[in-house]
Design a protein around this nucleic acid. Structure first.
Lengths: 195, 195
DNA sequence: TTGTGTATACTCACTGCTTAGTATACTTTT
DNA sequence: AAAAGTATACTAAGCAGTGAGTATACACAA
């Protein structure tokens, strides 16, 4: 049984990450991933039991890095909580202007696998989104805002809306509009708390 | 050249609508659509030039019905504009609890075709979303709210966020949270206008 | 130190199936 | 007869997954 730190396994995951994110899950064959990783399909099947297994592992490998990036964007910002939440969107809009940007891998995979609700990859996506929501709710609660759970959820909805709408319009100003909305909601929560 | 009102063409579109929405674009073969429509693939190719053409026609056929439904949900509701906007989300949440519900066909198609930015189906999706945004902005402007364009866009972002997040969590309370956020934003816009 | 056993990590070649799209011919309608 | 519409049967390519075998490395016994 190959170990998690296996360099070959990681090479396959890197290739899967590139291809699945760039082209989509169903559009990329196992052969293509193996080829990009510089080995044969049979070897890939030595490290992963199936394509579904590979898809799940691909998303799992994106969980921590993505969360860390959002946290960094928030933490590097000064000002009020509203400002710092909006900063996440500002950085997202910047990233989204790059040509290779194709939205959120978790959401796109869930959309593609909408006919398989119990798919392992969707569960991993669900856990990932929940982690972000909880992280944000904790921050909002610590700041003393009212209804931090609801507020965090609403910010998440704006963020995921921005991810999705971008794939339709390819216009990063939507992400900035979402950021403004998030800031408005946070400030409304501040006001309600003070008053 | 077959006409738009062709009953056979519509039968194919109905089948495409059911299958593409239920299973996804790439997961459904042209054969499957033809079979569900009760005819052979060759006949389908007489009415549509390619699978991409069929996909685009499928989304085009959903444009007006979907917009009409949202308008009905809004118009049937009494109360303030905020209440009526929130009503759209409430109805959406109700629809989303059905097992067959699989989110927004336009967004899911855009997510699946994220590697083909210029695809006709994505352009149709873009036009559809723009129409809804414009319809809402007109209402908000007529009501005398400040920045109706931005506000309409933010409501759209919440709605599309709700569509997408639902595919990950399968929890309709997210749609209600989005509705509350939309109402909060609309009311914040009212307040700013009055003050 | 040489030989034997074994697990790891890999490749080549393949199966069985599905795919989008087409060449050709038949039927029905006008 | 001519045109529209449909079916049968096909091509050529791609797909996920597998059977069978190989190179390497490392363990341990003689």
């Amino acid at each position: 049984m190959p170990r998690t730190s296996d360099p070959t396994r990681n090479r396959i995951l890197d290739a899967a990450n590139c291809l699945f994110y760039a082209e989509g899950i169903r559009a990329v064959s196992v052969d293509a991933v193996a080829g990009a990783a510089g080995l044969t399909k049979r070897t890939l099947y030595y490290h992963f039991t199936s394509k579904d297994d590979l898809i799940a592992a691909y998303l799992q490998s994106r969980d921590q890095p993505n969360l860390a990036l959002f946290a960094k964007w928030f933490n590097d910002e000064g000002g009020t909580v509203a400002d710092r939440v909006e900063a996440i969107f500002t950085h997202l809009a910047k990233a989204a202007r790059h040509k290779k940007w194709k939205g959120c891998g978790f959401l796109r995979t869930a959309a593609e696998l909408a006919n398989m609700p119990g798919h392992p990859a969707i569960k991993i996506g669900s856990a990932h989104k929940k982690k972000f929501e909880t992280w944000l709710a904790d921050i909002l609660a610590t700041t003393g805002l009212v209804e931090p759970l609801l507020l965090a959820r609403q910010v998440v909805l704006l963020m995921d809306g921005a991810f999705s709408v971008m794939l339709v319009h390819r216009d990063a100003s939507y992400i900035e509009a979402a950021g403004k909305a998030a800031a408005t909601l946070v400030r409304a929560s501040e006001i309600r708390n003070v008053g």
